[in-house]
Simulated scan of single mutants.
Amino acid sequence: MSDPIDILFLGDIILDVPDPDHWLSGIAEVTRAADLVVGHLEVPHTLRGEELEGDVPAPGAEPAHLAALARANIGMVSMAGNHIADCGAIGIADTNAELDRLGIAHAGADADLSLARRPAVVERAGKRIALLSYNCVGPEISWATDSCAGSAYVQVAAADGGPSRPQADLIAADPASVARMQADIAAARRDADVLVVALHKGITHRPAELAPYERPLAHAAIEAGADVVVGHHAHIARGIEFHKGRPIFHGLGNGCVVTHALTPAQDHPARAEWAERRKTMFGFEPDPAYPLAPFHPEAVNGLIGRYRVHADGSVESGFLPIWFAPPGRPIVPEPAQAAVIGDYIDRIGVIAGLPVLSRERCGPWFRIESN
């Protein structure tokens, strides 16, 4: 009998400090053993471009750092997020060109909206695996149009009636925008054996809580034909649920985020102001042991999602607990700590109102299914 196909999912990836292979090395043994690893590329990798005004911009990362993804067997990335356009059209073009050179498939950000909405497709063991990627948090200035580069998106209304932006209280997805996403999914479904939909969504830096639009939007993706929905953006893990028997990882947390852009001690006024303001907004003080990943204290608990396709067509879902060692490097924890993280994932799901999952330990992994 043929071996199963293992597809793994990482959350946000930012590698804008030296030695990217070191920062990935704590999970690289796991990622290299998989058939396909899908991550979310949070920032552009470019040495050019002009800073996008109107949000808190991230700096462009070194293009050469993308090669570390290939060396860690990260073969596919979603890109539709709130920072991918921070260096403008040039930043997106440079990033895509380097990903193409490295053979890393990508979806979600391109020279115009039609290109950004196209699925990325790879083949593993005769199976076609497709990825669609959508930014659900704004800012609207980062969205692609028919004539401008940016990200694919689902428009989500803010409670105050203002524009969609990451710091807004986002409450409900626009029905027409959801319908466009569902049409993309239905079209990609026709040629894919496995279809993954990545949603950049949620409330940053706040434990457990899901915004009102998150579950309905993820359910809509499943109902249109997605096999798996993966979420990122919050920089802290979220719970997991099943809809129509298919897994939704509401928030993978950080995959590997190491950056100086979020530390208060810096020269960039907007980034320094945001680093201070988010302490008040979200009620936490970053641990000084994590200068490269100054997130909520609970963000040290993370996970790698798994979707396994067996030769007979049956599937199983699961996750691997990961922990972030100071100053921000993801590692596979010892069994006792992994069990604690597994309990944490269960607990935040219950707090968020998600159904309780059945969870079984299989070596370092947890196999999960709906009760």
Rank of each mutant, 00 (worst) to 15 (best):
L170R: 06
A211M: 05
A173N: 12
V196G: 05
K201M: 15
S147Q: 10
Y213H: 05
P139A: 14
A237K: 00
A144C: 09
P166K: 08
L199G: 05
D160M: 04
G150V: 02
S151M: 09
R189P: 10
R189C: 12
I222T: 05
P175F: 14
V196N: 05
S164Y: 00
I222N: 01
V196M: 06
H205Q: 08
A211N: 03
L199Y: 07
L199V: 12
Y134G: 07
V178Q: 09
G239M: 11
H235G: 02
R180W: 09
C136N: 09
S133R: 05
I185G: 12
D191F: 05
V178C: 13
D227V: 02
A192K: 07
D169I: 12
I185N: 10
R190H: 14
A186H: 13
S151R: 02
A172H: 11
A224P: 03
K201R: 15
Y213N: 01
A144V: 09
L170N: 02
G202M: 12
A224S: 01
H219L: 00
G225Y: 00
Y213L: 02
I141M: 13
L217I: 08
H235V: 06
E140K: 06
H205K: 05
V156H: 02
C148F: 07
I240P: 00
G239S: 10
V229M: 00
Q182R: 15
C148D: 12
P207C: 05
A188D: 12
G239W: 09
E209Q: 08
I240T: 04
P166D: 09
R180N: 08
L199E: 09
A226R: 00
Q155A: 07
V137R: 09
N135Q: 08
D174Q: 15
D193Y: 09
L217S: 01
C136V: 10
E223F: 01
V197Y: 01
I203H: 04
E214H: 04
S151C: 14
A183N: 14
P166V: 11
D160E: 02
G225L: 00
A221H: 02
Y153N: 06
P216Q: 08
A234K: 02
V196E: 05
A149V: 06
V197F: 07
D227E: 01
A188G: 13
S151P: 01
Q155R: 13
E209N: 00
R189A: 13
G161V: 06
A149M: 07
P163A: 08
V194N: 01
I203V: 12
Y134R: 14
Y213T: 01
Y153S: 10
I171A: 07
S177K: 12
S164W: 04
A157M: 06
K201W: 15
A192N: 09
G138L: 07
A173C: 14
H219E: 03
